[in-house]
Amino acid sequence: MPGDYIQKDLAAFFNPQDMGSAATLASGTINVLFTSGYAAAASLGIEVESARPTAIVMTKDITGVKHRDQITINSVVYYIAEIHNDGLGLATLVLSKD
């Protein structure tokens, strides 16, 4: 099928030996690209230090995953707040500790 090579090659980018991280879902362990950069939360003049943890995943690995499911990355338990599907085989999970 055209484009299959993309799916096959994608896995290399998620390798935990390189840039990837192992993440545990209820359905098992998958590899993700995890980031958690600083993100100040500000509104009404109230400003709070925070972070915006996200995990890029291969959509084939998150079949059946839904909002509020737990995902554990680097021993930290997160809840999936948003699922941004790019339609090309990847999705970005926006994560929250609450």
């Binding site: 958690s36 993100a39 939360a41 509104s43 709070v48 925070s50």
Partner: peptide
């Protein structure tokens, strides 16, 4: 008074 709820790594709520 005015409340705000923000969502980043955690639920953040504030008020003025």
């Amino acid at each position: 008074d005015e409340m705000r709820v923000m969502k980043e790594e955690r639920f953040i709520a504030g008020a003025l």
